[in-house]
């Protein structure tokens, strides 16, 4: 059975917090052995403990994804200690708020190195092992910002766009090698997810960053990433808001571009709370904040939206039923 995960070995980068953490535990729950990669060894070990509670091997391998040799060493070490490497989840990511012209160039470069080149390093590390095994899945946690854009996050948007293009190109190379069915490359494009990414990012905008609504819980992305490992698909959105925005962008690009700019200016950065410039976790990890969610109310928001949708659907059903059952008033011909 191709799609079962028990006994498979999965590497998750960026596993110390946010989506990576929840995804690692989700894979462990499915019975896969997990290897966790991030910069903070202590936080990583805590996540590994959580995974081991599901009776699977869990190894913490601290590394910085911008270091290609370290990433290759993770892959080598995984195969040496666990015997195989089946799924590589590229997920480690940082963000940077501020205008393109104002953010320091080295911070801009650092975002591209982590979010894009980090994924390239992961692919280059995992592929030789996939080729040797004759099977493997590379899962890239991209973003809806791979296909749409927002202001004040130039580097992040560029890196996510790059990931999607790179994944596509890689898929083409594998197809030419005749390995399209054996080695799969998948990209997930989540909407706004409730993680500490927003508050951990570098910020030169002067305004405090927050999660732009609607916000989804990280469990939703974890479920998608796990399902991509089982039933690989090319590109998948996570969260209806992502799909809808991408569709609007395709239908009316110029208008949607300006609307998204206005929405981000309203809801992504706060007007009333000003913060000093800071490079966040770009060059060194922050001490606190190894939680899965970022405190942005993703679960609550999702629950509220579902109740609202159910209420509207229920009311609509009630109205339709009432209309259908209405007694006909008098004879038409009279």
């Amino acid at each position: 059975m191709r799609w079962r995960l028990r006994g498979k070995v999965v590497v998750v980068t960026g596993a110390s917090s946010g989506i990576g953490r929840v995804t690692a535990v989700a894979f462990a729950r499915q019975g896969a052995a997990v290897v966790l990669v991030a910069r903070r060894a202590a936080a990583l070990e805590a996540v590994a403990e959580e995974c081991r509670a599901h009776e699977v091997p869990a190894l913490a391998m601290p590394a910085d994804v911008t270091d290609e040799e370290a990433v290759r060493e993770v892959a080598r070490s995984t195969v040496e200690r666990l015997g195989r490497l089946d799924v590589w989840v590229n997920n480690a990511g940082v963000t940077l708020w501020g205008r393109v012209e104002e953010v320091p160039m080295e911070d801009f470069r650092r975002v591209l190195e982590t979010n894009f080149l980090g994924y390239v390093h992961g692919a280059r590390a995992a592929l030789p092992h996939f080729r040797e095994q004759g099977r493997g899945v590379l899962v890239n946690n991209a973003s809806m910002l791979s296909v749409v854009a927002e202001p004040y996050a130039g580097a992040y948007v560029a890196a996510k766009h790059a990931v999607l293009g790179f994944a596509s190109s890689l898929r083409q190379e594998l197809a030419l090698d005749g390995l399209a069915r054996q080695i799969r490359v998948c990209s997930a494009m989540p909407a706004t997810i409730d993680t500490p990414l927003f508050q951990h990012g570098g910020n030169y905008s002067g305004r405090r960053a927050k999660a732009m609504r609607p916000v989804y819980p990280p469990e939703r992305v974890a479920r998608t990433l796990v399902n991509l490992a089982r039933w690989p698909r090319r590109e998948v959105f996570v969260g209806p808001a992502a799909r809808m925005l991408a569709w609007q962008w395709r239908m009316a690009p110029a208008l949607t571009e300006r609307l998204t700019a206005w929405m981000a200016d309203q809801d992504q950065l706060e007007r009333h709370r000003l913060v000093p410039a800071d490079d966040g976790n770009l060059f060194a990890p922050v001490d606190d904040g190894d939680t899965a969610d970022g405190g942005w109310g993703g679960r609550r928001g999702q629950a509220r939206r579902r109740v609202l949708a159910a209420a509207v659907a229920g009311a609509g059903l009630l109205g339709a039923t009432a209309t259908a059952l209405r007694r006909p008033r008098g004879d038409r011909w009279s």
């Binding site: 028990r6 006994g7 498979k8 070995v9 052995a33 009776e55 699977v56 091997p57 040496e80 200690r81 666990l82 015997g83 195989r84």
Partner: peptide, 14 residues
């Protein structure tokens, strides 16, 4: 109990 051992080129469950 279930054990996992890296052997025979894979992760063996026993």
């Amino acid at each position: 109990t279930s054990r996992w051992t890296a052997a025979a080129g894979t992760l063996v469950h026993s």
